[in-house]
Design a protein around this nucleic acid. Structure first.
Lengths: 147, 147
DNA sequence: ACCATAATGATACCTAGTCTCGTTTAATAT
DNA sequence: ATATTAAACGAGACTAGGTATCATTATGGT
């Protein structure tokens, strides 16, 4: 069994940018570190409050680069707010916990198949879709019941 | 066969508001008429441009009332913009044509079932979801092919 | 160490929407 | 028909979230 070196997440994110020819600047380090320290999803605004030394434009620029590079993905919460979270795989959906903000990835599920069938039945040429699923994760069920 | 009187759509919308105790004012008439004349989805901004005589706040207020009353529903487009459209049924999803802006309702499909199964498998208590499907309707396929 | 240029932050701006408040108007009572 | 009064209105201030501009700074290659 080969033990691969565990690259800290922040470094990984920075490397992703590096691979695409983007420089490794100190604001970007701050942003990637802040992101790496997060659990679950977060907003640009949260990041901004956490990094008062980094300009607003820089934060939005960094988020955009990371989304474009596939390292982050955007998720839309029930309240209509846009959040970001680490993206571990290609296209997939999320079970978003409304209680603790965690999310589980929904991999290899049959939703795409179903959508393909349904679209075909409506003579509709499918080009994309957006799905978010809201609820409570197992850890948060007790809270919801007693709280 | 009973032939029911066809109530013009604008009147229907106004009646919906009336049933809930809201007054039938001339700005509201203008808004419901503009909506009734639309095909497919539209933004608050489009409505605003079409009705320069109606105040911004009034347009947003009317939209909110109509959404709350169930006559309209909100749809989120691929570009992240919020649109509105007539809502013919309860909770359902839409096949949104990115070409002409029309939409087909997806009724009685199995997506909810699938989501319930998947959630259960992840020990996740489902409370809601948001799904939009993008593509081209049958009428727009030729355009996409030749254009 | 130098240099070209990518990246930055301050700030102005923009879009989409909400809030406030003095005025108008619809629906009801007279 | 008129008076009454609360609902609804519009103007405009304000907010949140995000983008554009541009002079300055810092990075990475030489």
């Amino acid at each position: 069994m080969v033990r691969t070196r565990v690259i800290p997440l922040a470094e990984q994110l920075l490397d992703t940018l590096g691979e695409q020819g983007y420089r490794s600047t100190s604001p970007r380090k701050a942003v990637t570190q802040a992101i790496a320290a997060k659990q679950g999803h977060f907003t640009a605004e949260q990041l901004r409050q956490q990094l008062p030394g980094v300009g607003r434009a820089t934060i939005y620029r960094s988020l955009k680069l990371l989304v474009d590079s596939g390292a982050l993905c955007r998720v839309l919460l029930e309240d209509g707010n846009l959040h970001y979270q680490l993206s571990h795989q290609g296209h997939h959906h999320h079970l978003l916990c409304v209680e603790c903000g965690s999310s589980q990835d929904l991999l290899g599920c049959d939703i795409e198949d179903l959508l393909r069938q349904v679209s075909a039945a409506h003579r509709f040429q499918l080009s994309g879709h957006w799905l978010e699923v809201y609820g409570r994760c197992y850890d948060c069920l007790p809270k919801a019941a007693t709280g």
